[in-house]
């Protein structure tokens, strides 16, 4: 927790995918912080507690200076006298925390998140890994089923004019990349990643209508959702030729 908001980091047990979730302080009804605070929490316990709250309930998260627990108070909005309190004890994550190096990416594309979710799902049916190539003219997502020899490919062409950008999902131009594309392109880049982890990242489509894919050769793939209250990033470690 910092004066800007809450930053959350989580990683899978094989250290292939890391999630970084930032919630700006503006997404909270009130946000008070005396000093920066770092907590390690078991995500299952936190999720279990938060699921006890209904959509309209008020959740207050509290932790003191040398606290060992995060206290979650759940209050019914129209019955403020009705409060339930739950403690989520901190755990020692030790080496499970990673410091993410901020690197300049060579290429970035932004596509409709529902389309991205569909391509991840479809390619996952074919193969355990896929290749992503971004060249000046567009992007290509390819998966090959080694057994049957079947190859699946989704191609996105760079939008030629800014007008191709539409805010409404219904007006989605077929296969077009939103115009931000060319601004972030430095050189042709390709990466191979596991489709399983891409599917996982693509499931967050309800957060934002657009998703960005950022790449640099031999570096983790970054899948990023920007939304008003914050940003959700998935870093996926690549598969590299032996």
């Amino acid at each position: 927790c910092s004066k800007e908001g809450i930053m959350l980091q989580g990683m899978d047990e094989f250290h292939i995918s890391l999630v970084e979730f930032f919630l700006s302080k503006r997404s909270f009804e009130s946000y008070a912080l005396c000093h920066d605070l770092c907590m390690s929490l078991p995500i299952d316990s936190l999720a279990t507690v938060l699921k006890k709250a209904n959509d309209d309930d008020v959740c207050t998260l509290k932790a003191g200076h040398k606290a060992k627990v995060l206290t979650v108070a759940i209050e019914t909005r129209d019955q403020p006298w009705l409060v339930s309190k739950h403690d989520v004890p901190f755990i020692d994550l030790g080496s499970e925390y990673l410091v993410i190096s901020r690197i300049p990416y060579d290429a970035k594309i932004t596509v409709w998140s529902t389309r991205f979710a569909r391509l991840a799902h479809e390619l996952h049916q074919l193969s355990g890994s896929l290749d992503i190539q971004i060249i000046h003219e567009g992007a290509r997502f390819t998966a090959l089923d080694e057994g049957s020899g079947k190859k699946g490919c989704f191609i996105f062409r760079r939008a030629k004019v800014v007008d191709e950008y539409r805010d409404s999902e219904d007006d989605e131009p077929a296969g077009a990349i939103i115009h931000e594309f060319h601004r972030y392109f430095h050189k042709a880049t390709s990466l191979r990643v596991s489709t399983k982890y891409l599917v996982h990242a693509s499931k967050r489509a309800p957060l934002s209508s657009k998703v960005s894919v950022l790449m640099k050769e031999d570096q983790p793939l970054l899948v990023q959702y920007d939304f008003y209250e914050g940003v959700l990033k998935f870093y996926i470690a690549p598969r590299i030729a032996d």
Binding site: H15, I16, S95, Y97, V99, Y235, I240, D242
Partner: peptide, 14 residues
């Protein structure tokens, strides 16, 4: 052959 890399080879531990 392709080898799955771990994020620990890219990002450092504090």
């Amino acid at each position: 052959a392709f080898k799955q890399k771990s994020l620990t080879s890219f990002f450092s531990k504090p």
